[in-house]
Structure formats: C-alpha cells, structure tokens
Design a protein around this nucleic acid. Structure first.
Lengths: 210, 210, 210, 210
DNA sequence: AATGAATGAGGTTTCATTCAT
DNA sequence: TATGAATGAAACCTCATTCAT
C-alpha cells in the first residue's frame, strides 16, 4: 500500500467512486471517469486498487461501514423499544436521503449473484440482526413485546421494513413505487408515524407505565 | 414458409434471457451468451428483438406478467383478509422458490437507475398497490382492520414485506441475510405462521367469526 | 440460368436493384431490401445472381446499356456537328433527370478501384469515344472544325463536359456544386445554350451554311 | 505527459485513412484495417476521432485543404487569363499524379448520396467557384474574353474540365477511359497544350499584348 | 423450385488495464 | 513515482449467404 495520496485525496477518490458506482451501477461506471472527477490519475487508482472490482469492493466496504455507523448511532441502550424503533426509522429516512450513493451501493450489494453475496451479508446483516434481535428479545423478556412470535422473526420483519425505507429514498425504482402506494406528496413525519403504528401493532407493544 | 423458431425455442430464448439478465444484470448479460445458451444464433435474436434493450424489456414484461399472474391467482375476493394475506404469503414463497429467475429479473429492475425505473414501477407496482390498498381499505370499512392507519400505508408496508419474501428466495444476498436472522434451517410453514402473526398484529385484525 | 421468373419480374428486380444501388451505394444497399421491394424472395435472387456483386454487375451492365442506347439515339449521321452537339447535350440533360439511378450507377462505376474499372471503361467509353472522335474527325476534314487540335482531345474534352452534365443531374454532390457556380435557379435551355456557346468556341465551329 | 502519438504517427494515421477511404470508399474502409496499416491500435483512433465518420471528415478536410492549397498556389493575380489557365492545368495534372489518394478521396466525396454532399460541396466548390468566376469575370470586363457567355458558366465548364483532369490521374476508371480517347501513351505537355487550345477557343481569348 | 428464417463472420466502438516517459 | 495515452479484448449489431421446408 502506498502512501503518496493524501488522506483527503483517498477520501475524495472513494467518495467519487461511490457516487459513480451508486448512480451508474458497477458496469456503467468508468474508472477513467472516476479518475477525472476525483482529480487523480488512472494509474494511481490502480496502485491503490488491484482492479475495478477491488475499487468497487472498497466502495461497498465503505458503504457498509457507514450503514453500520448509522445504526450504532441510532441505537441507545437506554431507549425503550418504541423509542429505539422510532429512532431507527427516523435515522434510516434521513440517512438515506442524505446518502443516496451509499444506499445505491447497498442495493448493488444485494444484486450480487455470487459468493460475494454471502460475504457482504455477513459484513452488515450479522451486525444488525444481532442488535435488533437482542433489543427485541430483551423487550420480550420484559413483557413489553408479545411473546408469541419468535424474536428473530420480529427482528427480521422489522429490518425488512427498514431496508425498504432505505431503498425508497436512495433508489429510483423504489421511490417511484412508493408513489403508487402513498402518493407523490411524501412527508417524513407521516411516514414515521404510520410506520410506528404498524410496528407497534405488529410487536404488540404495550406502552409501559408512565 | 421456413422453419422459424418453434414456440419452445422462443420460450427457451426468453427463459435463457431472463436467467441471464436476472443473474448478471442488463449490462453484464451478453447477447452472444444468451444465443449460445439458447442454442440459436445471435442473428435470430435480433430478428425477434430490435436490440438488447428490447430483449431485456421482453424479459421484464414476461417477469411482471408472471408476478401479476401470481398475485391474481392468490387473491380471491371471497377470502377474509387473514386468508388473503396467508394466501399471498404462501404464494409468494412458493412462486419465488420455483421462479428464481423472474425474481432476479424483478430485482434487476429495481436496480435500474434511470428514467426507465419509473416506467417499470408503473408496469407492476401500480397493479399490486391498487389491489392491496383495495382489499385493506374494504377490511377497514368492515371494521375488521384497525382504522387508525392509512390503508395506503398498511398496503405499502405489507407489500414491502412480500417483496422481501420474494427476494429472500430468489436472490443470493437476501437468502444469506435471512440466515443471520432466523438461522439456516428455513421452513416455509414457520415463515408463513410468523409472518401472519406479525401482520395480524400490525393490521390489528379482529377475528370476525366467533 | 433458370426461367421461372417472368421477364417482367426480372426487369423489376433489376430496376429495383439499380435504384437501391444507385441511391444507397453498393455497400448500403441490402439484398433483402431489394428482394422485398421487388416482391421476389432472396433465394431466387441468388439463383439468378451468384452473389451481391454479380447483381451489382448486372445493374452496371444495364446502366451502361441504357447510356449507350441514349447516345445511339441522340446521334444522327445526317446532323451537322452543331446539331449533333446540341442533341447530345439536350439528351444527356433530359436522360439524367429521368434516370438518376442509372447515372448514379454510372458514377459508382467510376468509383471502382480495381481491375473492373478497366472492364467497365471499355464497355462504355470505347463506344462513345469512337463515335465522338469519328464525328469530330469528319467535321475537321470537312473544314467545319478547327484543325489545330487533335480530334481525339476534342472528343475527350467534349465527353468530359457531357459526363459532368450527367452527374450534375444524377448525383447529389454535383448538383450542389453546380449551384455554387450558376445559382439555384437552374434552367435546361440556359444550360444548353451556354454550353453550346462554349463548345462552339472550343471547336472553332464555322457555321457552314450561309 | 505520456508518449502520445507523434506528429508523424498522426500524419501517418491520416494518410493511411485517406488512402483507405479514397480507395475503398467510406463504407468498405475498415477502421481496424486503418489501425493495422498505421501501426497503431484501434483504440487510439477513437481517442483522436469520435467515430469512423469523424475520421472520414478529417480525411476530407485534409483533402480539401490540399486541393484548395493547390489552387491558391497555382493562381497568381498578376497572371494573364491564359497564364492562369495554363498554371491551373499544369498544377492539377502534377498534383493529381503525386496525390492520388487525395483525388480518390475527393471522388469519394462526390459519391456521397445524402445530405452530407451539400456540406462537402460547400467546403470546396464554393471556394474554387468564386476564384474562377472572379478571374474570368475580370477578364471579360477587360475585353480579353468573349462577353456573350455568362462568366459563371465559363467558370463552371472550365472547372468541370479541371475536375476531370484530376480524376484522370487519380482514379482508375477515368484513367482507363482516357486511353480510349487519346491512347495509352499519355504526355503531360501534350495534354496541357491541347487543353489550352480548347479552352482558349471556348473562352474566345484574344491574346492581349502585341 | 421457391421461400425467407437462420446463420455467423465481420464491422464499429468501449473501456479496463498497462507501461513508457 | 505519477501520469494518462495506448492497447486490444470483448461487446453489440448487421446483413450476405445458405438451406430446411
């Protein structure tokens, strides 16, 4: 690994690549364009990354890091389950809007057909699944959440909904799709409120005592 | 009149193309490979389809037709909401397992970044959104479903869960991801049962009959 | 050689081919299009003509026949030289306008780089050169035309001018080019008159009769 | 800064392309063949020229530049009309023999059937037509040239003859054709002399001095 | 014998990767 | 060492020609 690119340059390169890969997809994104946009020569990219795929992988890694960071920030062990859910929902929505390229990269991961899929799933989903399952399992034990559902499934369905929340904001198709369901005039608070109602019902959350 | 591609050959071409586009995406899928795998020449593909994009569109149309057909078959106006949900869940699961290429194709659509996304979304989501919103709205009016949630959102969240059910079976990443939540030993009935519990809670379904 | 195509069909095929080759050039003209337009199947074209090139050759042959026929009709042994010239000029102009495809084919011949050029030159130019040189030589002997120029050169320059007259009407480039010289409002009679003045001066024609 | 195609390499590329386009026409000339003959890769051609058409256009521009340059050099404002004509004739003949590819290229342009023909015609013919018409018109005013012919037509017929002079040397067909008129033993001086006699007669040039 | 669908070689163009400077 | 021009494999697409029916 060389050390001639400053950290800022490396960062810019990665961000540019994320944006290119995210918006155009891994095929249509051109290394030369990424070089041009980031003000770095093609040659140096190949010094830092073996090939286009390695650059793509780095972008994926960066994106999953960001997603994990977002989750980590959103979850506070002190929160009640309802608070945790609402925080996650709000955080997902705002993160996705501000970081569309990461979301698109994330979606690109889900499109991977080969063995890499397993690797990437492990990188990110293992982390979130443990967090969510833990939170929900604890809430079940505390009697706050219905106990007739496997907490793993509860966590799974909940994360499914969060993933879709991401894609709604970051990916064109999902964004269009959402319009057919809830119309074009979208509002974050309405979405949060409705999803909270849905989730609370699904979880059988009993508002704890005052 | 000359030989002409038999119906089976045409069907094989389309299925091969669906599989290629679904697994590799529209960019990486090669027309020449589709030809080779279909056992026909490149030229004949261009007789039946103007260009690669037209072939992709045909694959898309086929996939959406299949998905819509699946939904249409699953929904019976006589069903109670709970029955309808269970039918949809079971149908999605079994369809996705038997028709992974269609699901992958569907996922490939969701990956499209440009204007085509809007067109594709209209092709399929408009149809399902109207069906689900209709069913749920009616159930609300009948007092079977909680009325404090907008039926459009209920339908939206429900379809989100169904989409993920599709992808779980059809796409590698989602399949791996599921393992982190509910373990490797997956079972259709368990999934159906758990999801029904989740959904019923979310919908606030009151079992109508005594 | 088969005999299943009627004479009219053969004629139609050839005319269609001339028009296609003439307007699109030998490369862009497509055999299948010629077949479609002439109402004859591709297969039968290949029964009558070994390949596309042979069809092109037949079109060339037809075009040179027409050109020769035109010349033959225009020249009357009884005519004075001036009359002969004017007849040729007028005939070239009207023929070219009515038979643009033949002219374009003729131009295509002139574009041939290989040995075929020699063959085609012989087919048509030998014929015209002998006619023109004969007419002019005779006029020289009769003292009607200046005798200080080689009649072969006189014939050559005169035919050069006639060729250009053809191309002016039949070929797009020459047509545009003419506009830069004499403006867009072209008139056959003016052209004839001006060219006759030019030629008479060049030939040093002394009006014989009183 | 990297190697980059040297000026000689660029020149060689263009000359090779001129030769290919000139001899085979824009359709039959293959970019890969031009690359091979130039000793460079296909890709680099597309760095310098957007596509095949742009390369053709560059060849055209080069050819017309050469032709215009030739005309510009041949014409001296001090010359008498007869001198100007003789210079042009001699220059055309020698230029065409030394630069057959440019001439073939020029002929290829005249073969273009579509709208481009108009553009090409403007590029070159506008220039020469104005020069010739100017020279001849002035000579008419000075009483050196007959005034009963429109100077535009005089210039037109004269340029027709010059064009043919070009093609005679540069294009196979015209070269063969010439033999039928004036025999195989061609001689530049004889051609010049005969054409001068022809043109002087046509123009009605009165030798001014003495 | 006639048809016209199928073939597949060959052309244009792109872009990941290399490497001379 | 960094550059970015050059490379050339590989993709799309066309259409002359063949040949099963």
């Amino acid at each position: 690994m060389l050390k001639k690119l400053t950290d800022e340059q490396q960062e810019k390169l990665l961000m540019t690549a994320v944006a290119e890969f995210g918006s155009k997809g891994p095929e249509r994104a051109a290394v030369s364009e990424i070089a041009r946009r980031s003000g770095i020569s093609v040659g140096v990219i190949y010094k830092y990354y073996k090939n286009k795929e390695a650059l793509f992988d780095a972008c994926l890694a960066r994106s999953t890091d960001m997603l994990k960071g977002m989750i980590a920030e959103a979850v506070d062990p002190e929160d009640s389950l309802a608070e945790a859910c609402e925080n996650l929902i709000r955080t997902c929505i705002s993160f996705a809007r501000k970081n569309a390229p990461y979301i698109q990269m994330y979606h690109a991961i889900t499109h991977e057909p080969g063995e890499r899929a397993a690797y990437y799933a492990e990188t990110i989903e293992k982390y979130t699944s443990e967090i969510y399952t833990g939170i929900i399992g604890k809430a079940q034990e505390e009697g706050i959440v219905r106990s007739d559902i496997d907490p793993a499934y509860l966590a799974f369905f909940f994360d499914n909904l969060l993933m879709m929340l991401h894609f709604d904001s970051g990916c064109r198709y999902y964004n269009e799709r959402r319009k057919f369901y809830i119309g074009a005039e979208y509002d974050d608070d309405k979405m949060t409120e409705q999803m909270m109602l849905f989730v609370k019902g699904a979880f059988g959350i009993r508002e704890p005592e005052v």
